[in-house]
Amino acid sequence: MEENISVELENISFGYSKEVTNIDNISFKVKEGEYLTLIGHNGSGKSTIARLITGLLLQRKGNIKIFGETMTDDNVLKLRKDIGIIFQNPDNQFIGSTVRDDIAFGLENDCVPEDEMEGIIQEYAARVGMDEYLDKEPSNLSGGQKQRVAIAGALARHPKILIMDESTSMLDPKGKRGILNLIHKIKENDPLLTIISITHDIQEAYNSDHVVVISKGRKILDGTPDEVFADSKKMIDMKLDIPFFKKLNIELEKSDLSKYKSNSLESLVKKLCR
């Protein structure tokens, strides 16, 4: 059986004004259950793509399909029900006056019965490590804590597609790891959940199923992490990060120390410390 495609972009172009083209003829497919990372320099058009997929922006050309259904004015609200989006700045998506109210907001919109709500809120708040904060006022939370609440609110609605627009970029390393582990755990429970993560975290991209690289509004690379990261120099040219040992090897080469080039700490120690 052919695999389901959850999100498909077909020749999408978009500009914030008539004179400019911010997205230039981009096409890619995301399979159901896939963990896609979208990477590119600041201003490359990554966040614009997220807004196009959710129908928050309307493309100039091309089609966006969600589970095979082309998005139109008439079905955008219906299609959006399957999509959870978490933005970079949690302050822009906080609605409730307490953490509990905020997670409840999406559930209320979905007409979840009140007696079920508390259990769902408790469950998802616990999953993101915020269950002790349910009665706190969002304005008194730190940026990272707010983001965890936003993630809980989105996940509580059981979306089929979860879009994360740099949503871990404000978390501390431990918090970031925690959220990424959480997303992986949720994917284990729900293997059909499609994740589209816009990120600068090269390690996250490395651990994903599928990487799309955007530069200046164009798609540059599209493939598995191994395929995409094969050409380190190209990645650097595109202002992107590369793994530590690839960087180290480039520097060693520059200093005529190529014989010490290594792909792991062990082999570096072996070559250098005899």
Partner: peptide, 11 residues
């Protein structure tokens, strides 16, 4: 306060 959060490596 977190001036480089969300910037690409070159930025």
């Amino acid at each position: 306060d977190e001036p480089t959060a969300g910037l690409d490596p070159q930025g």
